[in-house]
Design a protein around this nucleic acid. Structure first.
Length: 641
RNA sequence: GCCGGGUUAGUUUAAUGGUAAAAUACUGCAAUGGUAAUGCAGGGCUGCGAGUUCGAUUCUCGCACCGGGCACCA
């Protein structure tokens, strides 16, 4: 007999080799029906897998979050089986469940296109209705190698499994897959799924390897849930900054302007100007000094910094002139080093905080270019803080506080914090000085802990000169992007031989903190378009008020009075006095997502009031002119959303 | 850069081996109005290059660009 402990701490006894499925059935048939898998001492267990010893058991029902990866991973296997039947030469890579759904990578001579997805889905349904039992088998390394003898990718995976670790396969009918498990017990349990896209993906994520075909899909426990997910995907597309940016005339792409060089239209430029003003003022508040440095620098400058060797391939090639080679700058750190080095510094001068709107260029891979998100010419709100070692933590926290201020003002949703560390093995990329790295990484981790920041450590993500904290956001389409970054750097100040005189009259090298504030204007704009779904808050909106006179002949005098008031306060308005129907002009104002719409007719002229309708609302308000102006100014000042 | 897909009017979409349509936008005329589309008229389009064909926007190939994914992201 074995003792099974349940989450409520109740204990029951069962025969050894009883399965979780049988246990669920013994409690109630309806529970058994809802069960998808189990967690045995925290490990995912199939319902048909015999339990050998005493354990804690948690039954995972189909309304439990933990059920989704089990179902989706099983659906990945089902898809693989269908693919194998349709493309007998297919060789398989990996097919995990992911945050949303699943994918499977495979390799076949035949081209698989979007149209083939329907075919594969049909085959999947057929296999599901064959009601094949899914069974787990523990096998030896030799058996595994024999089983997957024709499957080079699986053999490679077997090689990667450590000696002594258990190897398991899951079988369903004629199909077997190397897999650590977490599955439903029968293919018939997989009823509701949708294959989404065909994509390419490098084997083991390495661009030196062959590119496999990857199919993404999504499975759920009801057709309704699948439909709801497809709906979400559709909504995300509607929110995509590339779509809204075009509709709302924020930016345009033109091949003549060059790949990766978007053009900001007047609306986009207006939003950008507001952001720029905000950034500049906040930096002043936080004690930053602004500098202007050139967009182009000598190649020697980047040789000094060390960027040249590492990144020359990823940038626009240098411009060679008589006896100079000039480089379109991809970052501003070297220039800011020169600013610091322009005079003798005392320990009393530190910290020195230099900030700049940095125009920079990078030759991003053509496939990486996306709307305003990844471009080849960008303006970064960059800063470098030159600090004494004893000021590192305080200045780091200072930057963090400032970033959090902006996060709050814009309503940015942080996805997670990433602490990027070096890969100690990678001597080629990372400056070889263990002591320096250990010091920098420890210090960074300490500051984060002190400020109560939860972070994900990422090995091998650090800059070549030091570790960094990245603040990550998610785009509408679900990509993780870096919004802000704070980086610790002991290297560049050395390379530029920077120093200050300490209280003992000794020359000391300062430490540099690199601070990327709110990414580039381009990327922030892309993010904000998606965040607000194009309906910008008052302080950022390209047009803040639409004014519609009911009749140009009778109402223009009062309208002129309103216009004068708005102009005085630099409120951005659009006086729509075209000879069109009222409803037509109202509709246009709404589709352009202008935050406030005012209609001026006899009633308003008579009572000197304003009839206001806010974007997205059906009801109207009547305000006195002064009240109206104050409301707008308040919203601008408070950055109301 | 790599894998697969796409490209029709300013925009969103339709259709076709016999030279293309609608909505909207734009221009003109008429309409003077109260919270999401007034009516009529007009001009405007098959990304580029090659091949197959009597004839290609349609089929094939190459290129460019767009979008999805992977890799990259100082």
């Amino acid at each position: 007999m074995i003792k099974i402990t349940f989450p409520d701490n109740s204990v029951r006894e069962y025969e050894a080799t009883t399965t979780a499925g049988q246990i669920a059935a013994s409690i109630s048939p309806s529970l058994r029906k809802k069960c998808v898998a189990a967690k045995l001492d925290g490990e995912t267990y199939e319902l048909n897998r015999p339990i050998q010893a005493d354990a804690h058991l948690e039954l995972i029902t189909n309304d439990n979050e933990a059920a989704m990866p089990v179902l989706n991973h099983s659906t990945a296997h089902l898809m693989a089986q269908a693919i194998k039947r349709l493309y007998p030469d297919a060789k398989f890579g990996v097919g995990p469940a992911i945050e949303e759904g699943f994918y499977y990578d495979f390799d076949t001579e035949e081209k698989v296109t979007d149209e083939d997805l329907t075919k594969i889905e049909k085959m999947m349904s057929n296999i599901a209705s064959e009601a094949l039992e899914i069974t787990r088998k523990e096998i030896t390394r030799e058996e595994a190698k024999a089983l997957f003898v024709n499957d080079a990718y699986k053999l490679e995976l077997i090689e990667a499994i450590e000696e002594g670790e258990m190897i398991t396969v899951y079988e369903q009918g004629e199909f077997a897959d190397l897999c650590a498990g977490g599955h439903v017990t029968n293919t018939k349990e997989i009823k509701f799924f949708k294959l989404l896209t065909v994509a390419g993906a490098y084997w083991r994520g390495d661009s030196n390897n062959k590119m496999l075909t990857r199919i993404y899909g999504y499975a759920a426990f009801s057709q309704k849930d699948v439909a709801a997910y497809l709906e979400i995907l559709q909504e995300r597309k509607e929110r995509d900054h590339k779509k809204l940016g075009k509709e709302l005339e924020i930016f345009t792409l033109n091949p003549l302007s060059g790949l990766g060089f978007p053009i900001l239209l007047p609306n986009g430029a207006t939003i950008r100007k507001q952001i720029a003003r905000y950034v500049t003022e906040l930096e002043e508040d936080y004690g930053f000094q602004h500098v202007f440095t050139p967009v182009i620098g000598s190649v020697d400058l980047y040789k000094t910094s060390g960027h040249w060797e590492l990144y020359k391939e990823d940038n626009f090639p240098p411009i060679e002139l008589d006896h100079e080679a000039l480089f379109l700058r991809p970052m501003s750190c070297p220039h800011h080093m020169l600013v610091y080095g322009s005079k003798m510094r005392s320990y009393r001068d530190l910290p020195i905080r230099l900030a700049e709107e940095v125009i920079q260029h990078r030759y991003e891979a053509s496939g990486a270019l996306t709307g305003l998100e990844r471009v080849r010419a960008m303006t970064l709100t960059d800063a470098h803080l030159f600090v004494r070692p004893d000021q590192i933590k305080q200045e780091f926290a200072h930057c963090l506080k400032m970033i959090h201020q902006a996060v709050e003002d814009f309503g940015i949703e942080i996805a997670y914090y990433s602490l990027s560390l070096r890969d100690p093995e990678d001597k080629e990329k990372y400056h070889d000085d263990d002591a320096m790295w250990i010091k920098a990484e420890t210090m960074l981790a300490e500051v984060l802990d002190e400020n109560g920041i939860d972070y994900v450590p990422m090995t091998g993500e650090a800059a070549f000169y030091g570790p960094k904290l990245d603040i990550q956001i998610k785009t509408a389409l679900g990509h993780d992007l870096t919004l802000s970054t704070i980086q610790l750097d002991f290297l560049l100040p050395q390379r530029f031989e920077l120093s200050y005189i300490d209280e003992n009259g000794e020359k000391v090298t300062p430490v540099v903190i690199h601070r990327g504030f709110i990414s580039t204007y381009e990327r922030l704009l892309a993010y904000l378009i998606e965040l607000y779904k194009g309906a910008f808050p008052m302080w950022l909106a390209p047009t803040q008020v639409t004014i519609i006179p009911v009749n140009n002949n009778y109402h223009s005098e009062y309208v002129a009075e309103i216009v004068a008031r708005l102009k005085k306060h630099r409120i951005r308005f659009n006086l729509d006095d075209r000879e069109e129907k009222l409803g037509y002009k109202i509709r246009e104002s709404q589709t352009k997502k202008v935050p406030m719409l005012i209609v001026i007719g006899d009633k308003e002229v008579e009572s000197k009031t304003i009839n206001v309708r806010r974007y997205g609302q059906d009801d109207q308000q009547t305000l006195a002119l002064e009240e109206f102006v104050t409301t707008i100014l308040d919203e601008i000042a408070n950055k109301s959303r």
